[in-house]
Design a protein around this nucleic acid. Sequence first.
DNA 1: GGGCGATATCGAATCGTTTCGAGGAGTGGT
DNA 2: ACCACTCCTCGAAACGATTCGATATCGCCC
Lengths: 366, 366
Amino acid sequence: MKSEDYPVSAHKPTLASVAEAAGVSLSTASLAFSSSGPIAEKTRAKVLAAAESLGYRGPNPLGRQLRSGRSGIVGVVIGDQLRRSFRDPVSIQVLDGLASTLGSLGLGVLLIPGGLTEDGRRVVDPLVETAGMDVAILIWGVHRVDPTLDALVRRGVPVVIGEGRPVDGAPLVGIDDRGGTAALTRHLTSLGHERIAVVSLPFGATRRSGVVTDLSDETIDWTPTLHRLQGVRDAGVQPILCWETEASLVEHGKAAALEILSAERYPDPAERPTAIIAQSDLLAAGVMLGARELGLRVPQDVSVAGFDGLDLPWLGSDVLTTVRQPLAEKGAALGRAVASLIAGEEPGTTVLDVELVLGTTTGPPP
Amino acid sequence: MKSEDYPVSAHKPTLASVAEAAGVSLSTASLAFSSSGPIAEKTRAKVLAAAESLGYRGPNPLGRQLRSGRSGIVGVVIGDQLRRSFRDPVSIQVLDGLASTLGSLGLGVLLIPGGLTEDGRRVVDPLVETAGMDVAILIWGVHRVDPTLDALVRRGVPVVIGEGRPVDGAPLVGIDDRGGTAALTRHLTSLGHERIAVVSLPFGATRRSGVVTDLSDETIDWTPTLHRLQGVRDAGVQPILCWETEASLVEHGKAAALEILSAERYPDPAERPTAIIAQSDLLAAGVMLGARELGLRVPQDVSVAGFDGLDLPWLGSDVLTTVRQPLAEKGAALGRAVASLIAGEEPGTTVLDVELVLGTTTGPPP
DNA sequence: GGGCGATATCGAATCGTTTCGAGGAGTGGT
DNA sequence: ACCACTCCTCGAAACGATTCGATATCGCCC
């Protein structure tokens, strides 16, 4: 692909040079491309021909953006590490819904790492400070003190929150974590379960795993975790155990189950939990793997429930009891909030409904 | 968060108004922010104070971008549908490596859907035409005729290819699909396998599933599929069967196995394939699930091999025989290619090495 | 005290486009 | 033949910053 077949104007051709070559004014040339004004077909052809011969590839977006004051770009700040977030189908489906909604609005998704380092420290990604974006979406992870959020506010970038702590003046899109979990929990109590354990999502940025004893609301920085735990209590259940995981991944659910259900922890099987509420389907799947490895049958020996309503093809013939949330719709709602923000409106909070799905992994206690 | 506490200058404050308020020139005010020139500490303080009182949030990136001629944005065109690509850990890990490499260069990743509709048609995403990007990466899916590629070339956006058909003048990053598969295949033949079936990745944009009889190179539009199939032949093996899947997902691998190994297809077990080469680990995992469902033991009754070298925690105690590719490194290599392109160099083709990993899922034929 | 050099500041040009109001050419009607 | 009107085209002013060469100021040394 030779690229030097053009007149030696040294610099890249610009709309001005095209106009000159075509013998029309700059504004007319602009019209020829933007088609946002009356122009004679003959003139347009002349301009296009000149553009062709100069090797002009169409208006430079940067110029347009400066003029219009919009970049057409929406920054999506992923709370967790990219690698981890993307292993979670939940994130993916939301992102997919978001990207397609924004796409139909002519907006693009700029991926911005949330600035969570391997060792749990938080830094502000340079893109947050420098990228030209019309709106930013903070997704999975608005923290109690959040330098990224602060930076965006300081820059005056309008912010939309997806799944997180409400921020003054920023529209929020979430689901009814609390109500959904409460309904799920009531399902378990109505089956007769009394010894219920919770395998929870991470509490916040500092990733630990293990039993948590202090379940006070202030301990929990991550909103879905908090709300789903509150839902359990709303149903009048005090978990006999809460195990915090470091990420919503199958392996962590499995590790949790191996500990929670182990003979070491409960020498007397009668004291073992009869049901485990995992705060995500991925964790629940892990819990089931762990339980099986310990020789326990689901749901005969232990019931397992999840949250999300994913399609887990490798789960075999079991159907997970879970709370289905509208993932793609969440993405779409985020997109709509962005659109309305750009239109100068002030969208409020959106809470999407969830649905209890009864599967084959819960049953009466042994 | 009140936002109307500022002097009523009606319009958003600009660097010029800050300069005026501070009683300095525009250029000096610029220096105060960019710190790319000598400036007295006292002056800078004065400017910053003026900015503060005017509610100026720092230089507008759009202005900077126009001046510098760079947007700092790299468009990543995802060949497949976002939803599907992102369910594949392979894509994710590459993207993660890419994003972090680009991040350290101050570049952002703009996600661009490859324009594959549900019904298999191909359209060009509007972002391809309009977004201001310094470079575009085409990843998983450069087609024989590719309108997206054409549009980018027409616009004069430099292109990097990840895993695809070589394009004249564009750097390419790939792996040794062919050599890796050949090595894997030889491992199987050395174990004594003669009846080997292949469960392949999609052949191209039109997603079908089923047995393919025409395996000529021209039939196959998608490069990794082609190269991995060629690798099998390089090892001197003619597959007794090739099953095309519509995506690299567990469920499709499982469906393939249920068909390929079924009693209907092979009433005489002696004619059944003794080994199955799946072109991805996800497919291989599905094949194993399917085989088990049919009551076949792996590897006693049938050997299964994959490709990618993923970490599949829910696979149980089996270790998949596979070909490990350096995923994050592939992303990093793409990032480096971008960087060198921006620096005005002309990076060439990068082919990364792969490694045969012998697991417990392959053994001698029954 | 004069001259020299370093250090800060300034003016003006530039990046590439869109848009608005004004002007000009052409057409049709009376 | 003139007027009114429509349809195009044009000039100029933004949009918001960076950057380069020139100028002004100050301190210091001889």
